[in-house]
């Protein structure tokens, strides 16, 4: 049984359909990259998987760990082991990273860890990610730079240890050192029980994290998939050739679109 199975997914907002029949299968132990031009629907797919109430599934299926995701709330999906690193994580004033992560960890594991062992673990992770100790005392994303937000997401990834990590542009806004640290942290987590779906615009992060598959999304559909070399080709040639090559692909029918 694949870890994640997306079958002919149509999704969007009440007014518009953004995803027009996405299919994707991800097995445990794999790392897939999802690329594609701006506004092609990559983040929408990520949000649909995580259960964003703003994204409505119109038809198709999403199965994770054998369960139908549409029937689950975002928190239930997270407790099954699904994690989304947000492209734009929101600010939550007055709540420190440390206390937020502790609350989340408690909800995810159902275990009551002692304050001391929790802080010891958090300190260890901060060190691994070369983050200053007082990083965790800051209010969640309040006044964070773009790079800091990404590092907060990576810190959470490292603490929560999910089964499936969907990383929406974990590399955007990162300096060269930070990119290496994030990539190392992901690589350290790679295991036969875990899978990653990495959304990115750049080859650079994939130089560190070698993907098993690369998918290209255009206008809400995955139009092309390939091995790691596809990312390199995209880096060199851009998306125009893909758009042209796959322009002939049947456009979704009227009927499908209004579903």
């Amino acid at each position: 049984m694949p870890m994640l199975e997306i079958d002919n997914l149509y999704a969007g907002t009440e007014e518009v359909t953004i995803l027009h029949g996405v299919s994707l299968t991800l097995d445990a132990g794999e790392v897939h990259a999802l690329m594609g031009p701006n506004a092609s629907g990559k983040s929408t797919l990520a949000k649909a998987l995580a259960g964003d109430p703003g994204i409505i599934v119109k038809s198709g299926k999403m199965r994770f760990m054998g369960k139908d995701l549409s029937a689950l709330n975002p928190d239930e999906r997270a407790r099954l082991g699904l994690f989304l690193s947000f492209q734009y994580p929101p600010e939550v004033p007055g709540v420190t990273i440390a206390s937020f992560i502790r609350t989340a960890l408690h909800e995810l594991t159902g275990e009551e860890t002692s304050v001391l062992s929790y802080y010891a673990e958090l300190k260890e992770k901060l060190k691994q990610l070369e983050l200053p100790e007082d990083f965790a005392n800051r209010e969640l994303h309040v006044g964070f730079s773009g790079g800091e937000k990404k590092r907060s997401e990576t810190l959470q990834l490292a603490v929560f240890q999910p089964k499936l990590a969907i990383l929406d542009e974990p590399d955007s806004g990162l300096d060269i050192d930070a990119l290496r640290i994030v990539a190392e942290s992901v690589n350290a987590m790679r295991s036969p029980e875990r899978a990653f779906l990495i959304i990115t615009h750049y080859q650079r992060i994939l130089n560190y994290i070698a993907p098993d598959r690369v998918h290209v999304m255009v206008d809400g559909r995955i139009v092309h998939s390939g091995g790691a070399e596809l990312a390199k080709e995209l880096e060199e040639r851009g998306y125009d050739w893909i758009k042209q090559e796959f322009a002939g692909m049947a456009l979704p029918s009227e009927e499908q679109d209004t579903r």
């Binding site: 709330n73 975002p74 947000f86 929101p90 989340a104 995810l108 959470q156």
Partner: peptide, 8 residues
């Protein structure tokens, strides 16, 4: 949604 996506 963000907080819930963390299992809360």
């Amino acid at each position: 949604f963000y907080l819930m996506s963390r299992g809360i």
